[in-house]
């Protein structure tokens, strides 16, 4: 098996959607959003990311962008209502970063969370483990 086939465990400190996005809430009310290791492994080599510019406001579970592999396109949904503060330029320039480090350097959006109560409706790492058969 090559390196990229190795599974990365779902970090315990993140929250997840059933659409395979994760969100990491920072103490200052900002948050990082990305896609899970399971998602990147299903997609295969990621070649293009289409994500919104800073300033865009999004409702919970709204489609915010697309991630493309060589032969597939998947919609991205935001885990919570938020405003986009920043996008990951490194990942946009080198989408393989999302394959390699989906939970860390391969993040997609930095956002300002609008309503932190929505976090309750997301999955815990254990629940997400169950969803993806880990």
């Amino acid at each position: 098996m090559s390196d990229k086939d190795k599974q990365i465990p779902n970090p315990r400190n993140l929250k997840y959607t059933k659409d395979h996005e994760w969100i990491r809430i920072e103490p200052d009310g900002t948050a990082f959003i990305g896609i899970t290791d399971f998602a990147q492994s299903q997609l295969g080599d990621i070649v293009f990311l289409d994500v919104p510019k800073a300033g865009k406001t999004l409702k919970q579970f709204e489609k915010f962008g697309e991630v493309e592999s060589v032969k597939s396109v998947s919609d991205l949904f935001t885990p919570v209502s938020c405003e986009v503060v920043d996008t990951n330029k490194h990942a946009i320039e080198q989408p393989e970063l999302v394959n390699k480090e989906p939970f860390s350097n391969g993040w997609l959006l930095k956002v300002k969370v609008k309503d932190s109560s929505e976090v309750a409706s997301l999955l815990s790492a254990q629940e997400y483990d169950g969803l993806t058969g880990k």
Binding site: V47, F48, S69, V73
Partner: peptide, 12 residues
């Protein structure tokens, strides 16, 4: 750049 095309993106 095949993700633009019908066999992948279908109605989009």
């Amino acid at each position: 750049l095949q993700t633009r095309e019908q066999h992948i993106r279908r109605e989009r």
